[in-house]
Design a protein around this nucleic acid. Sequence first.
DNA 1: CGGATTTGACCCGCGC
DNA 2: GCGCGGGTCAAATCCG
Length: 322
Amino acid sequence: MDTSSWVDTSLDLNPSSDRPLPLDTPKKEPSENGNLIVFGKKLLFGKKLSMKEESGALVEELNRVNEENKKLTEMLAAMSESYNALQSQLMNLMSKIPEKELSPSKKRKSESSNNNHNNNNDNYNFGITGNSESSSTDEDSCKKPKEEIVKAKVSRVCVRTEASDTSLVVKDGYQWRKYGQKVTRDNPSPRAYFKCSFAPTCPVKKKVQRSIDDQSVVIATYEGEHNHLPPSQMEPTSGSSHRGSASLNPSGPTMTLDFGKTKPSGSDVARICSSSQPKMDSPQVRQYLVEQMATSLTKDPKFTAALAAAISGRMFQQSPVE
DNA sequence: CGGATTTGACCCGCGC
DNA sequence: GCGCGGGTCAAATCCG
């Protein structure tokens, strides 16, 4: 199941969850904590109060916490809604993009037939586009039955990095060894070739190249499936609380975007999540994704601004002057 | 000193 | 068959 790839990705959207967050939401958290503290205090000093008073206070606190809870739930729902609205808008715009983006001078068709017909448009999808097996058309399977068998799973991931960062390094939790670099015709930026070096027998390869459209975005194309767990998950000390994904098909083409090097900006999340929408066929997964997004939102209000900026910026880029 | 990276050469598939 | 271009190899180099 390929959904694991982007699910896994989404799970790592909060790599900072184990570090003390600045918490720019003083409205919510302190009040919540305040409730808890007050609650605790009253428990501590409850001895001096009569049972009635104590129970009354407890009920009061309970009501207050419930209200707080309700508010938070509403906020969550609102955020999820606005996120979905933005996402659908983005997808609408994406679908309107003409195929003019395709480079007309492209000679070789192997790549385009291996992936999708709108190969280059993948670059503008900004996210994991899934494997070629599921996305390849009937035509492809007729034309290239051989490759259909040989071809390993292909996934594409786009990651925003610092534009000044010239190293084509995509931290995805695996260990890679670079074995080649090539300047291709389509893109003046060099393409780097990596092999998974963590396990000698692991057949997975990845290609990393900057997007011709946006130099701050690198496109990583993964081929094959890891036959081992990501090193980050094999370390017992590597955080565990927020990595509930360890059980999710570890042998699949999981892409645990660490973003350790680059800051986990909202745009990253927006790109990954928005692009993976076509794979959102499982309601559970979808719900989980929304929860993850909501968690990010509630933890970092700047996220909203970053998300809006990223999407609006993308829209502006795709429909320049109207 | 060993592993990782760099980079030019080579291989191979595809289109003409 | 030839040329082009992407992908891979492997020697040289770098780096911790």
